[in-house]
Design a protein around this nucleic acid. Sequence first.
DNA 1: GGCCAGGACACCA
DNA 2: TGGTGTCATGGC
Length: 213
Amino acid sequence: MKYTIQTLYEKMLAEMGPQGWWPAETKIEVAIGAILVQNTNWRNVARSLAVLRKETALEPQRILRLSKDKLIELIRPSGFYKNKSRSLLALLAWLAEEDFDYAKIKRKFGAGLRKELLALYGIGEETADVLLVYVFDEAEFIADRYAQRLMAALGLQRADSYRKLKEEITLPAGFSYQAAQEFHGLIDNFGKHYLKHPADFANSFLADATLEY
DNA sequence: GGCCAGGACACCA
DNA sequence: TGGTGTCATGGC
């Protein structure tokens, strides 16, 4: 079976259903989680968010007022706490410049928003795209490891790095940010179930699928 | 008990 | 540009 990005998304959604990939009540919670989850199991992130919530109610201004050592203590379960505490403060301070008004920030930077995010310490391509999709409501393709593995399994040649895949894949016109959110959740959960080992893919509903883009 | 997860950065050639 | 070492916790 041959798929386009659009029909692949529809197929995965039909087979797997909505994933509810990012468990968060607010956008600031997504932003915090996006930093903490870098190369880390979500289970560990959930621990950090729980204690962080107890201490600060996840109010960014309260987090910004924490001492460095206190912040490190709170996010410790997520690992890489030295880097992540610095990243978190950088992102929150940047968002605070516009009072966490995400629409205003979008208007301010326009198409340059991604580059602005990348300039912040600790925010690379994947985290930048995650923030664009889940915080700034933009339809971006998140070319993470699971996406790379999936697209490679579907026959895509240049899918072996974030940037290569990002250049290869363009979301269809009219693809909504909600669809981009869901697509990412579908891809990552598909990967967890069917791409842990190369042979698993053969048992999936995409076993005979190829991507025609 | 080693391996790895919902990455990014510094350093090197 | 691309490859490697480092950062760290907790589950399996």
